[in-house]
């Protein structure tokens, strides 16, 4: 990942900073430039809850290049306690024991490395609680 894009996404990846539409209150995550509900263009930052539950998940057995050494791993659609949904890797888990409805918490982990000499990219992953 190139540095400018990575730096731009730090608030959402590190601190779960979302955008709340000032017109209708809809929360967009990742932050959007246009509200998906009312098409408003004014937003204020809001931090998401880090606890939630798994809505659905899949096991990745053939990963993209930068994730190929981590296989097999789980990726889940997670609904946070504040209702926001996001996609995240589920880490530190026995894949066989994962279940829909499983309570999870988002934690700070290394997501990928830009090769052997490039930047390290951090962000959120989910752990079972």
């Amino acid at each position: 990942m190139i540095s400018p894009r990575y730096a731009r996404e730090i608030p959402q990846r590190y601190q779960l900073v979302a955008a709340r539409c000032t017109s209708c209150g809809t929360i967009g995550f990742p932050p959007r430039r246009v509200c998906k509900h009312c098409r408003g263009r004014q937003f204020e930052p809001t931090k998401l809850d880090s606890d939630g539950k798994i809505l659905t998940f899949t096991i990745i057995r053939v990963g993209a290049d930068r994730f190929s050494k981590q296989t097999p791993y789980a990726v889940a659609v997670i609904e946070l306690n504040d209702g926001t949904r996001l996609t995240a890797q589920v880490t530190d888990c026995e894949l066989e024991s994962l279940e829909i409805g499983q309570k999870v918490r988002l934690v700070f982990r290394k997501i990928q490395e830009d090769g052997k000499a490039g930047i390290l990219c951090y962000g959120y992953k989910a752990i079972c609680v």
Partner: peptide, 16 residues
């Protein structure tokens, strides 16, 4: 450490 853990992630969780 997990494959996605290092001194930075450990420090973040401890400091949290």
């Amino acid at each position: 450490p997990g494959q996605d853990e290092d001194t930075i992630t450990i420090s973040v969780e401890a400091a949290r």
